[in-house]
């Protein structure tokens, strides 16, 4: 087993080293595409880390992404870059902690409703603060960060997220979450502190999303609330994670890569009907592939191996 892990680790490192060379290609278009791919891979994986095992649908990806981006817009020129990232991560964790502690103690629906409105709420608060207190709406981001820097930061974050996800899945916390996903009442009876487990993982996942927002912010140079809190991001990330299959750590990648490429193509070709097409793709996934591509692979491998298909009673 440990030999397998070592081999897998070596392959991952080699892949990482190869991917790190992408900016050296010197093609701005491919670099931009690679940044989009990494961005959505991290966001979808982070989404799946929490929502996959617990089956609590979070619609607040944009809210955290926006908090990160806006932190950079406000502090980018004042503090050194690592400190800016740290502040963004801390802010994201605090917001996630508050949201988690107030809604995750209750039934899952309240959590969904709250995350559905969270983006709008934070956007309104930011606008209110900017209009009344700081008296600027829309800020310029002048930081000395190139596209290649953004790419490398995202790559490191991707590696970190996968490592973290792998470690969590092997820990007591990960096991507790899987039990909660199967049956929350049983989890409570086993002595699992369900609220703590849920809030902890939600906070971790949200912190990662906030970091992505912060890292991506220098790409825009001009940021206003409607750009930072664009609800399409929540939607796209949700589609990707579901297509890939959120119950596996490696599932969301399988959705993020093809869909980022597809969205790139569609938004250029059909800018006006893009939203409708997105909605239709999403509906197709919900109806045809409820367990995602990962679920499809598992089904194929179990039937090919001749093993009896196990059905987990939900």
């Amino acid at each position: 087993m440990s030999a397998r892990i070592a081999g897998f680790g070596a392959t991952a490192l080699a892949a990482l080293a190869l991917l790190a060379l992408v900016p050296r290609l010197g093609n701005a278009y491919y670099l931009a595409l690679a940044i989009s791919l990494l961005q959505y891979t991290v966001l979808a994986t982070a989404w799946g880390m929490f929502s996959g095992p617990t089956r609590y649908v979070s619609l607040a990806t944009t809210a955290f992404f926006g908090v990160g981006a806006y932190t950079v817009a406000v502090l980018g020129e004042i503090l050194p870059w690592p400190l800016v990232l740290l502040t963004a991560a801390a802010l994201g964790a605090i917001v996630a902690g508050i949201v988690g502690l107030s809604t995750l103690r209750l039934s899952g629906v309240y959590f969904v409703i709250f995350t559905f409105g969270l983006t709008e709420l934070i956007r309104q608060l930011v606008v209110w603060f900017e209009v009344n207190k700081s008296r600027v709406l829309g800020r310029y981001v002048f930081v000395n960060i190139t596209q290649a820097d953004i790419y490398w930061q995202l790559l490191v974050l991707t590696a970190a997220v996968f490592l973290l996800g792998w470690l969590i899945a092997r820990s007591r916390l990960g096991f507790a979450l899987r039990v909660i996903g199967e049956d929350e009442t049983v989890a409570k009876h086993c002595g699992i502190n369900t609220t703590f487990a849920k809030v902890a993982l939600f906070t971790i996942s949200a912190t990662v999303m906030t970091l992505v927002g912060a890292i991506m912010a220098p790409r825009w140079t001009y940021i206003e609330p409607s750009i930072a809190f664009n609800s399409m991001i929540s939607f796209q990330v949700l589609i990707m994670a579901l297509l890939g299959g959120a119950h596996r750590l490696w599932g969301p990648v399988l959705g993020a890569v093809p869909l980022t490429l597809l969205f790139e193509l569609l938004s250029a070709r059909f800018p006006n009907t893009f939203t409708i097409i997105l909605g239709c793709i999403f509906l197709l996934i919900v109806y045809m592939l409820p367990r995602g591509v990962a679920g499809l692979f598992e089904k194929l491998s179990t039937t090919a191996g001749g093993k009896p298909t196990q059905r987990v009673a939900a």
């Binding site: 649908v57 939203t275 409708i276 909605g279 009673a313 939900a314």
Partner: peptide, 29 residues
């Protein structure tokens, strides 16, 4: 398809969330 009420809730949330974008996109167009 839903085995219980919670599963139906998750599925209906996802389906109607997708529907939101179809309707909104149509109205925008």
């Amino acid at each position: 398809r839903a085995p219980n009420r919670d599963a139906l809730e998750v599925d209906s949330i996802l389906a109607t969330f997708g529907l939101t974008f179809v309707i909104q996109g149509s109205m925008l167009a």
